[in-house]
């Protein structure tokens, strides 16, 4: 058993995103879905901008997407994150965009439009965050 505790900070939980981070702990990427009109949105909010209803649910992401943008933060150093951290915007197959990280890939091999698949990484305080790596199929 790996006794090393993850350094990565726990996600910032807020009243309007609790369902998202509760889902992440169960390794589900939950995309907010309006229970009235069915609109998907990310980041989630307390009201549907399309129909103005507040009955909000979610749909579980199938776990595939494409890279839209990516950067490598070099300074200031982020000791709580992996030293080869890549921050990326991923267009999910469901049609929403999410900020995440791309892992398990050489920096020079990252391309816009590259297909990626979802996995989860552990954080402090028993949290988990959605991550992406090159699609295997």
């Amino acid at each position: 058993m790996n006794n090393e505790l993850p350094l990565r900070p726990a996600p910032i939980r807020k009243r309007d995103n609790l369902f998202f981070w509760d889902g992440a702990k169960l390794e589900e990427l939950r995309i907010q879905k309006c229970n009235c009109c069915g609109k998907l949105q990310h980041p989630p909010g307390p009201m549907c901008p399309q129909c103005l209803e507040t009955d909000m649910g979610y749909q579980v992401c199938v776990g595939r997407g494409r890279v839209y943008s990516w950067i490598i933060p070099r300074y200031p150093e982020l000791p709580m994150f992996s030293s080869d951290l890549v921050v990326a915007l991923i267009e999910l197959e469901e049609g929403v965009r999410i900020l995440s990280n791309i892992c398990d890939v050489a920096h020079e091999d990252i391309r816009q439009g590259m297909e990626v698949e979802l996995f989860f990484a552990a954080t402090q305080d028993d949290g988990k965050v959605p991550q992406f790596r090159p699609a295997t199929q």
Partner: peptide, 27 residues
């Protein structure tokens, strides 16, 4: 506006936030 989604993924500075946009421009 709410930047917690960026903080959670290691994008802590305005440079990182802006560069995510600019990378799309550069591409």
């Amino acid at each position: 506006s709410d930047m917690s989604w960026a903080f959670d993924m290691g994008a802590f500075t305005p440079m990182a936030w802006q560069a995510l946009n600019a990378m799309v421009y550069m591409e």
